[in-house]
């Protein structure tokens, strides 16, 4: 059993928030409400509830199970580990002799697997917890490369005071560019184009 604490103004608020955060249904969890409207609460104090559920139902564990089953169905031999888990993101690492097949050309297959995993696991919840799947440090290497691309473009823009248009990128890649340049002086970023694959333009800003 895993127990987590949630607080809120009303019981309903706690229940809704807990179910959305944990991505579970009401019959999968047990709520234990504390300081239930005591004499001294005067409706000001937040309510807290201990929310308990089976270990297997932990979102990270469900992600692991899903990826494991998906790879099994793809006939791919792999070991899968949960690297990081919080309410915003889950990081899963795959170890496999078939890593080239899992990654695909320019990460195409890995991107597709990640898309399916994210939608399948998040679809019933109002809170989107990003599931990131990495394999042989592919993502961390790619992230490093994208950061370098972003910073090089920023340098170029500051020098020439003219905008630079980067290569087409998927949402995951664009996000890294935007995040990297958010804190950089004298530059601004914006995505251009239609559809999923857009291009980021880096602008000069006084």
């Amino acid at each position: 059993m895993i127990t987590r604490e949630f607080s809120g103004k009303t019981e309903k608020e706690i229940i809704d928030n807990a179910l959305d955060t944990l991505k579970l249904k009401e019959d999968q969890v047990v709520f234990d409400f504390e300081n239930k409207g005591g004499i001294f609460s005067f409706g000001k104090k937040d309510l807290t509830a201990k929310v308990s559920f089976e270990d297997d139902l932990l979102f990270g564990n469900r992600c692991l199970m899903f990826v494991k089953e998906l790879l099994e169905k793809m006939d791919i031999e792999a070991k899968i580990y949960l690297i990081e888990e919080d309410d915003e993101k889950i990081i899963i690492e795959i170890e496999s002799p078939d890593s080239a097949l899992i990654i695909g050309k320019q990460g195409k297959n890995l991107e597709a697997i990640q898309t399916i995993v994210n939608v399948a696991l998040n679809r019933n919840s109002n809170i989107w917890t990003k599931v990131i799947i990495d394999i042989g440090n592919y993502r961390s290497r790619k992230e490093k490369m994208l950061k370098k691309t972003a910073l090089t473009a920023a340098m170029q823009v500051r020098k020439s005071k003219e905008s630079v248009l980067l290569d087409p990128m998927n949402p995951f890649e664009r996000r890294i560019i935007h995040m990297t340049l958010k804190e950089e002086k004298n530059v601004e970023t914006e995505s251009e184009g239609e559809g999923l694959v857009k291009r980021v333009r880096v602008f000069y800003k006084e």
Binding site: D75, K108, N109, R123, G195, L196
Partner: peptide
């Protein structure tokens, strides 16, 4: 709609996974 997704994103992902394994 859930199988196809916005801009056909999900259908494309399913097809990508399929072609990845069928290359074998």
């Amino acid at each position: 709609g859930k199988i196809i997704g916005k801009h056909g994103r999900i259908a494309k992902a399913i097809r990508t996974i399929l072609s990845a394994v069928s290359n074998k």
